[in-house]
Amino acid sequence: MSEKKVIEALVIDSVKLLAEDFQIDSLMKPNAATLLYGIDGPLDSMALVNLVADIEDAISEKFSVSISLADEKAMSARHSPYRSVTSLADAVLERMPS
């Protein structure tokens, strides 16, 4: 599996767990194209904060590296990294040490 696919799977798992924990029905079966935050995305800002923290924790547990997904770069990006599973996975990849 490519690195992108590994990260995408991790993001999908995090979204699934968040959906279960906070009972967000529309996110119970996410895939790479699932929209998360913004236009047509089901997350509110608090749920997004939780998802971001969950993904950061999962990355830290799996790869023993610490990344921050809620940084200035993410806030000022032309296309929000939080809009979908795949854009979040890209944001993770960008922040992973090579």
Binding site: L17, D21, V49, V52, D57, E72
Partner: peptide, 29 residues
């Protein structure tokens, strides 16, 4: 937190051995 201004964090002390993700899920439930 740049998204909401601040977010809520917690530190816990426990002698139980659980992974962070398990703790988090138990805490949320």
């Amino acid at each position: 937190n740049p998204i909401t201004g601040s977010d809520i964090a917690c530190e816990i002390v426990s002698s139980q051995c659980k992974s962070l993700s398990t703790w988090k899920r138990d805490m949320r439930r």
